[in-house]
Design a protein around this nucleic acid. Structure first.
Length: 224
DNA sequence: TATGCGATATTCT
DNA sequence: GAATATCGCATAG
């Protein structure tokens, strides 16, 4: 394994889509009192400027203010009453956009991740954005932190060469769901989502996502 | 492998 | 009151 060094902000592309692509293969590290956990980033999604699916779409609020920090800051928020999700802010100060970190391949602190997650299987420790934050010990207290500073949560260089990067539509959203803004390392066992999205292109006809399916089911029921 | 469903907080309408 | 950048468990094929 290569020596992992902190990524300076100047290394991050100053564009949301490019950053999402760039982060594949890089390392996320968290040092806590319990110990260090780290992992290779194998799946991301871009939430670009003017994106109706992005939290910054309706302007800055108390909740999403970290998305408006200059690139390289953590935006953490709570969703579905169950999960915390971690994003990296991606544009210049005052412009709201970010990259959602969706899955990691565990590197260091695997036992600590197992303890935090309460499961054993390596592939499931950080596959999915909500699982990732649990495994890494990331929570709302990390919202707004600078991932390019000298803090405990940071982005690092790649621990080993990155494989081929694939693209697909994003997962779990309804608005602008067709856009090819999800990036992943092809062939990785640590990537979330249905297998058909994890091959290199083709951008297949848009499958219905979970929310839409639920809506349809409900409508069918009330129709009877 | 896919589909269905409940849990549950915060924001927006 | 509805929607949501999810997860874990159940069930079916």
């Amino acid at each position: 394994m290569r020596k992992v060094r902190r990524l300076p902000r100047s290394a991050l592309p100053a564009d949301t889509v490019q950053l999402a692509r760039y982060l594949i293969g890089k390392t996320l590290v968290h040092d806590t009192e319990e110990g260090r956990t780290s992992g290779r980033i194998v799946e991301t999604e871009a939430y670009v400027v003017g994106d109706a699916a992005g939290h910054a779409y309706r302007g800055q609020t108390q909740r999403n203010r970290a998305l408006f920090l200059r690139r390289g800051h953590a935006y953490v928020y709570f969703i579905y009453g169950v999960s915390y999700l971690l994003n990296v802010s991606s544009e210049q100060a005052g412009i709201g956009a970010g990259v959602l970190l969706r899955a990691l391949e565990p590197l260091e602190g695997v036992d600590l991740m197992r303890k935090r997650r309460g499961i054993e299987r390596l592939e499931d420790l950080a596959r999915g954005p909500g699982r990732l934050t649990v495994a890494m010990g990331v929570g709302i207290h990390d919202d707004g932190l600078d991932l390019c500073g000298d803090g405990a949560l940071w982005l690092g260089t790649e621990a080993r060469p990155t494989g081929e990067v694939g693209v697909s539509i994003r997962i779990g959203i309804t608005r602008e769901a067709h856009r090819p803004l999800r990036f992943f390392e092809t062939g990785s066992r640590f990537v979330s989502g249905p297998g058909r999205l994890n091959r290199v292109l083709p951008l297949n006809p848009e499958p219905k996502n979970a929310t839409q399916r639920r809506k349809d089911a409900k409508e069918n029921k009330s129709r009877r």
